[in-house]
């Protein structure tokens, strides 16, 4: 029985890896090679496509841009939501319940509903076409979910610790930053992982907000190449592979943390 299941698992796993493997194999080929045999290994592990895509995408710069945006966004989300989530959980008033519900319901707003008005607001606040501004926008889009998760996590922390700290003379802010915030580390890791992945893989928002190609994220740079490459699949595939390399590297290193974070995010949120 276990053997049978193993065989099934292997088959499903092959199916799962198939698109990635196909993309990888064919990214080394020339157009003619791809045309003659799409399944075969390339004749030579030719890096021409990669070199070209790497240059055309402005790879290093795009990568750094993406990192800056994600770093900015995550700092905002973590700090703002931890404070809000904690206070909304600990202080039970009608106002706090109302605010909490507002944050939770905001999770349901479809992005397309606010796309153009959001851009107008971003323009007004000088957040558009700026990497830092993108961080602020992501904070705004991400706090709803994060507040919800912090709120849920705070519930599980015993109140005694905080009480003890305030008896010791800690102010509200002191209690939060010295006592509560460190205790939130597990959920903070979770929220960071979830949100960084989301920002890293987001497409439509940067597409609208960033106009200067020097500020493009990896996905935008790749997307730009689709138009330029036309039907040159090997070149397109090389750009796709280049785009997924950083996440796959991070995944290889931090796999356990990422999966744990995702699971905690869903189960404890």
């Amino acid at each position: 029985m276990r053997r049978l299941i193993l065989v099934l698992l292997v088959l499903v796993a092959l199916f799962w890896l198939f698109p990635l493997l196909m993309a990888l194999l064919n990214s080394f080929k020339t157009r003619a090679e791809l045309f003659t045999n799409i399944i075969a290994f390339p004749d030579a592990w030719n890096l021409d496509n990669y070199v070209r895509s790497f240059k055309r995408m402005n790879y290093v710069r795009s990568l750094i841009n993406t990192i800056i945006i994600a770093a900015g966004g995550i700092s905002g989300i973590i700090l703002f939501s931890a404070m809000a989530g904690w206070v909304l959980c600990r202080v039970k008033t009608r106002l706090s319940l109302f605010l909490f519900s507002a944050f939770v319901f905001s999770m349901l707003i479809p992005f397309h509903a606010i796309m153009i008005p959001l851009y107008q607001v971003a323009r007004l606040l000088r957040l558009s076409n700026s990497l830092g501004g993108m961080g602020v926008i992501y904070s705004g889009l991400g706090v709803g979910m994060a507040v919800f998760m912090y709120h849920g996590f705070v519930k599980t922390i015993p109140l005694e610790l905080e009480d003890a700290a305030s008896i010791d003379g800690c102010s509200g802010a002191g209690v939060f930053f010295r006592v509560v915030f460190p205790l939130l580390l597990p959920i903070t890791a979770t929220i960071s992982i979830m949100n960084v992945l989301w920002m890293w893989n987001d497409f439509l928002l940067p597409l609208i907000m960033l106009r200067n190609s020097r500020k493009y994220t990896l996905l935008l740079s790749t997307n730009m190449l689709f138009g330029q490459y036309g039907s040159d699949w090997p070149a397109i595939l090389s750009a796709l592979i280049l785009t997924v390399i950083p996440v796959l590297l991070i995944y290889a290193v931090l796999q356990k943390q990422i999966i744990k974070g995702i699971v905690d995010g869903a189960l404890k949120g």
């Binding site: 107008q120 609208i208 106009r211 997307n223 689709f226 138009g227 330029q228």
Partner: peptide, 19 residues
Amino acid sequence: MPSSEQYNNILQTRLSSND
């Protein structure tokens, strides 16, 4: 140089936002 499917979308967003 956005791709042609996205071009109108982006241009429109920019124009309507005084950008």
